[in-house]
Design a protein around this nucleic acid. Structure first.
Lengths: 149, 149
DNA sequence: CTTGACCTTCCCATGATAGGAAGGCCTACC
DNA sequence: GGTAGGCCTTCCTATCATGGGAAGGTCAAG
């Protein structure tokens, strides 16, 4: 089948199929005499695997590992589980970061009048004079600027 | 002061300062006779504002809006609040997606032996023959993992 | 005058996805 | 046979924010 059909059946955009081939995530497709890529059902199966893995948020690099495990009938389920749990960890880390942002912002917004007046703790926090992200990277906290504070 | 100093004082990487200038997020810096960019304390202040906004996860586009509001003494705090809450919504949406992924994966991993045997519900879910997972929201499709072949 | 830290511009890469242009191929229909 | 139009091809561009690195100019201290 042509790439369009494979795309429909797998749910993977044709552009992405070509890209996956280009970067080596999938084998180079066979070509018809006229140069069209040709796919077998098992290729579509692989593409669906990739699509599901992407839906789980796996990077293409991890997906390459998952594909290898999938194809390895001697695989240890422990290896799959490890990959999966590492990914869960990464997701949790990202979630925590986003929640920190969202909660901080929600807190500030809760204290913002949200009316016609200009006073706003959100803007004021962003514009605060103090040294800011020192917390994020342990910079030298020496000279505070200005005695106010 | 030179860009390196401004970078240290603001916490914004020098490369990023140049980039912000290039895309118009900040004004073009004044130049010394030899072509070095020159920054005033108020420029550093702006950079810190940007850094904090980035730490909150705002896109550069939104930051441009926030900067405009910051500079507008006649601003309505309601405008700031709206921006902030829109962003909170976006964050929450992203969080929800990630949590869906993480939870689904955790669930699968919980049912994976994680031993030397190859059988693994994680791989089997990814490789399922059925029509694409359409969405893994609504994730709870009963486990029909055992009977497939 | 040399050294080394700093600055400049320019190019490239990331990750995954997508849009579009220019041109070839295929098929259905008249 | 001719043509419309849908599919395919490659190639280029862009996203978003970040950063690496090269080649070369500038500056201050020794």
């Amino acid at each position: 089948m042509n790439i369009g059909r494979a795309s429909k059946e797998s749910g993977v955009n044709a552009k992405m199929i070509r890209y996956y081939e280009e970067v080596g995530l999938i084998e180079k497709a066979a070509r018809s005499p006229s140069g069209y890529r040709s796919y077998r059902p098992c290729d579509v199966h692989t593409l669906r695997f990739i699509k599901r893995a992407r839906d789980f948020g796996f990077s293409m690099e991890k997906i390459a590992d998952l594909l290898a495990l999938w194809r390895d009938r001697e695989r240890a389920s422990g290896d799959v589980k490890r990959l999966a749990l590492e990914h869960v960890d990464a997701l949790d880390t990202k979630i925590a970061k986003l929640q920190t942002m969202a909660n901080a912002l929600r807190h500030l917004a809760a204290h913002c009048g949200g009316d016609e007046r200009p006073d706003c703790p959100i803007i004021e926090t962003l514009a605060a004079e103090e040294r800011p992200p020192d917390r994020l990277h342990k910079a030298d906290r020496r000279e505070r600027l200005g005695g106010r504070a």
